[in-house]
Structures are given as C-alpha cells and as structure tokens.
Nucleic acid binder design. Structure first.
Lengths: 216, 216
DNA sequence: GCCCTGGTAATGTGATCACGAACCGGGCAT
DNA sequence: ATGCCCGGTTCGTGATCACATTACCAGGGC
C-alpha cells in the first residue's frame, strides 16, 4: 500500500496540486483544508498534510490566521518583485539555452506558440497560461540549468493563480509577438535579441497584473 | 502540548534545522533520519517528518535512493548555477536597499563586517559564514523585497553546507574588501558601484568553490 | 436592535500503531 | 574460499485516534 501506482501518495498529491495551482485552476483566496484534500484523493490526513507543507514551503500556499492555508492573493508590490525576478532570471536561462537550441527545438517552440495563439483567440485563460508556461519551460529545459529553472518555477507557482485570474486584462495585447521574436532570434543565434525578447515578454505579462491590486 | 513554546513543534524543528544547514553546521552528505530528528527534539515522527518535507521542498535536503534524505553534495555545475543566481539577484536587492539606507544601517553593516574580519583572522569558518550572511541579510532587509529575499535565502540554504565545508580555500583572500567597497558606495549613494561590489563579492565567494568538485 | 456569551462543529496538531521495503549480517552450499 | 540466501533491524509511509484551538451560530441580556 505504501507505493500504489508509481510514487508515494503524498508526492502524487503534491504534484497534482502544484500543477493545478501553477495553471491557475484554483482561484486566489481559495482556502484548502487538509481533511478536504485527504477526502478528495481518498487518502488519510497524513499525506495530504505533507503535500500542503511542501506547497507552503514553495510559496504556493500561505498560512492563514488559524493555521489554515489559502492560495495567496498577491499584493501589487509582491507581483512587481516576482516580475523583477522573472526579468532577471529568464533571460539568463534563455541565453544558456541558445547555444544548445537546434532546429527541432525551434520548430517545437513554434508549435507551442501556435497553441498559445489559438488559446488566446478562444479566450481560453487556462489554456493560454498553460501553453505560455510550456513555451518557456521547453526553451529553458535546454539551458541545462536545473537549479535556476527550479527557482523560476517557484516564481511561476506563486504568480500562476493571479496571472490566470487577471487574464482578461492582458488578452489580445499581442501576447505571442515576443515569442515569435524570441524564435527568430534563436534562428539567427543573436543572444542579445533573444534575451531582450524574453525580458520584454516576461515584463509584458506582468504589466497587466502590476498595479491594479496595489491597495492590498 | 500542541504549542510548547511559541509555535508549532514542526515549525520550531524546521527553523532550527534550516538555520543549522544554512550555517553549515551539518556536513554535506550527512544523512538525516526522521526518527533520529524526532528523538533529538523529543517529539514524535509526525512533526519531524513535516520539517524534513519543508526543507526538501526548499532544496536544503535531497531524497536518497530509499526515501532517506541527506544534505546535498553540490556538483560543480550546480554551484555555478547558484552563483549565477546570486550574481543576478543580490545586486538587484542592494540597488533597492540603497535609497533607504541611512547612516544607522551603514554603521551596523560596518560592525558586522568587523565581526566578519575577526572570524576570518581566527579561521572560524562557521563564524565567518554566519557573519557574512548577516551582512548581506541586513543590507537586503532594507530593500523591502521579501519575495526576492526569500528566494536568495533558499539559494544560501543550498550553498551553506558546501560553502562552509570549503571555507579553507577562500579564507584570507580579501574576504571583506568587497564589503568595505559596498559600504563606501552606500555612503556616496553610487548605485552602480554598490551593485558591482555586491556582484564581485558574491562571485568571489563562489570562485573558490566552483570547479574543485567538478567531477561529481 | 445590538452586542455579548455560550455551545457546537470543523480543523490543525501530534502520538501511536501497523505495514512494507531496504540494508546488513551471518550461515550454508557449491 | 566465495557466492548466495535468509533472517533481523532500521526506517519511511500511511492510517487512526485523542486533544486543543478556532470559527461560526444561536440565544439571551442590555
């Protein structure tokens, strides 16, 4: 019973919840209960608690007043910070991926960007966020920099719910133009242009978010 | 019994272990057992397990083959990555702290740097690492950027054991010169010089580490 | 009508137990 | 002598139970 399918139950629950949070499937401010998670996955409280604990350590969940945990409602200041982190780390990842990027990867990125545009046309917020993350993730995997990528992913995890919830205000604003610019820079091998395209893409994503919740 | 001192037992254990790991008091490669931790702190397995889980989520502990956890032995490549992260994020924090740095803070930093030099003279590895971290932490606290600071601290957490273990090879190499340069830049308010001093300090710390363990 | 107070339900915390897997040792067969 | 098997020990995993704390709501007093 300890290892039913492939890995431990707490790890399975952690991965599922993490993916759901990163893709914005759980609204900000939504409170999660350990007993509720345990019941949903058909397990006891123990593995559910450990999954919640790990998510809390990554900043995906914030402790409430009474030990409860919720998907955090990010303040404008915090969003700006997270955007600054993305603007610093992601161009670095792109720069490291560039020398290793072959044609197959570039074609794959173009495909993902097409999915991205399609979701954008269909006003599919979750689909857009998912495809956008896949685009960046696919590129950064080539950087062979797991430590940096892990850090960036924790930032995505914190931004995911808010980005998805605020999708409306950034939709249609040339969402995929920066992606195309990055793909073009990959083809020509121009690292400076690539880094700038990624930086612009990242800050554009966040400009729509930053400020509109400045009060809290 | 639920709240012995001030907070939950698992949180207390987490904080103590995290501090010990960050300051290099636990050697890399050292394996920790949940039962051992529970026995050491006089609690049951449950809170010990949660503390280990949180530390694992922050990268302070890595899972072994059989689910056991150890303080990670960083590869040369990973050290280079973590150094790159520090070189990107810490100048940003210093730049944000500069406009808010008053004379009291600068004096405090000078005091901490004196402690740093003293530990360096006495070949006190743990003391040097601790004072060095306190120097950076004190400066970055003024940046009012908790999200970035939290990320940088997880990097310190991962680097702590290796930095402390490899202290010998970087001792005496003008360890505190960059600190003095940063303090001078704070006095004159020159942001570019401050950022460069921090960047040089961070990369200097890691140059001694990078490469000597490149094999693993 | 409003606020305070008491009780009940819900939830987190932690201990204990049972189970399974991995590691380590000695003993036996070849 | 060496390789293999088999037993015990150690440890992580997960379930269950007991307890403290907190939130929520209803009822009564001012």
């Amino acid at each position: 019973m300890t290892v039913p399918a492939n890995r431990a139950a707490h790890d399975r629950i952690f991965r599922i919840l993490r993916s759901e949070i990163m893709q914005g499937e759980i609204a900000p401010g939504c409170a999660l209960t350990i007993r509720g998670i345990a019941e949903r996955f058909g397990v006891s409280m123990t593995p559910a608690r450990e999954a919640v604990r790990r998510l809390g350590a990554e900043g995906a969940l914030t402790p409430n007043k009474a030990g409860r945990v919720t998907v955090p409602q990010l303040s404008g200041r915090r969003i700006e910070e997270l955007a600054a982190i993305r603007a610093l780390l992601e161009p670095e990842l792109a720069g490291r991926a560039r020398p290793r990027a072959h044609m197959a990867l570039i074609k794959r990125l173009a495909q993902i960007n097409a999915t991205c545009e399609q979701a954008n046309v269909q006003n599919d917020a979750a689909g857009y966020v998912r495809a956008n993350l896949e685009f960046h993730h696919t590129l950064y995997l080539r950087a062979q920099a797991p430590a940096i990528l892990a850090l960036v992913e924790t930032v995505w995890l914190q931004l995911g719910p808010t980005m998805c919830a605020s999708y409306a205000r950034l939709q249609g604003a040339g969402a995929t133009a920066h992606h195309r610019k990055a793909i073009a820079a990959l083809k020509t091998g121009d690292e400076a242009v690539l880094k700038e395209a990624i930086r612009a893409d990242v800050t554009r994503d966040l400009h729509g978010l930053d400020g509109h919740r400045a009060g809290f």
